[in-house]
């Protein structure tokens, strides 16, 4: 219980810093998810009838996830310097795969008979895409977006090492001051804030998924 009280004291004395770092992390999540989502969904749509291009883009997107975060966060420093930029680039590259993979799976999972009947009714390919394929694939795509957002929360903790801010700041400063007072509290603050953010984003995006999912129409 002692640990909990001293941790709570630590957090409540640093409301401003908590707010700042949380906002920084959230900025990463929002910008990265939006940018990666735009790129990945476009890529998935464009390559939906080109299996080779699709598999190639999937393979390239997945090779980024192979590269260790510390390496990917730092490798662009000679080009773009420290701070937000290298962190954003790395997080963006990581976030493409989950959305791209779900977009391609989601689009491919639409039943051929549904597409056939849509074409049979005279819908143009664009109309088929916008009115049939994307709406049907949307829940799967959104699930990919959620995975990317959660991935971004977890990995962005390391941005602090390249002066990119975020809740990882608490972990870094705690580690640096070990074993001085408040250092452990600081580390836990970083970890707990990260987990809390992940949990919140998970709930929000799941809720969004439920809201945007088409209810099956009943004809009784």
């Amino acid at each position: 219980m002692d640990g909990l009280t001293s941790w709570w004291d630590f957090v409540s004395n640093r409301g401003d810093q908590v707010l700042t770092t949380v906002l920084e992390t959230l900025t990463y999540v929002v910008t990265v998810t939006v940018a990666a989502g735009a790129v990945a969904i476009t890529l998935g749509v464009v390559t939906r009838h080109r299996p080779f291009a699709r598999d190639l883009s999937l393979a390239i997107a997945s090779v980024f996830l192979t590269i260790p975060s510390l390496a990917l966060f730092t490798i662009f420093i000679p080009l773009v310097g420290l701070g937000f930029a290298p962190s954003f680039i790395a997080l963006f590259l990581y976030a493409i795969l989950p959305i791209l993979r779900n977009t391609t799976t989601g689009l491919a999972a639409v039943e051929p008979s549904v597409l056939e009947s849509a074409r049979g009714m005279g819908l143009t390919p664009t109309q088929v895409l916008l009115k049939v394929q994307l709406p049907l694939a949307w829940p799967v795509i959104l699930a990919g977006v959620r995975v990317s957002a959660l991935l971004t929360v977890g990995i962005s903790a390391i941005a602090t090492l390249v002066a990119g801010g975020g809740v990882g700041d608490f972990i870094k400063s705690g580690l640096a001051r070990l074993p001085l007072p408040n250092s452990l509290e600081s580390i836990w603050t970083g970890v707990i804030l990260s987990l809390a953010l992940a949990l919140t984003i998970d709930i929000v995006l799941r809720g969004l998924g439920r809201l945007t999912a088409r209810q099956p129409t009943r004809t009784v």
């Binding site: 977890g154 990882g168 452990l184 580390i187 990260s194 992940a198």
Partner: peptide
Amino acid sequence: GQAVPAYGLIVLFFV
């Protein structure tokens, strides 16, 4: 556990 950032986890194991 997977949601714990790697950076935080390794530091906690160190502690």
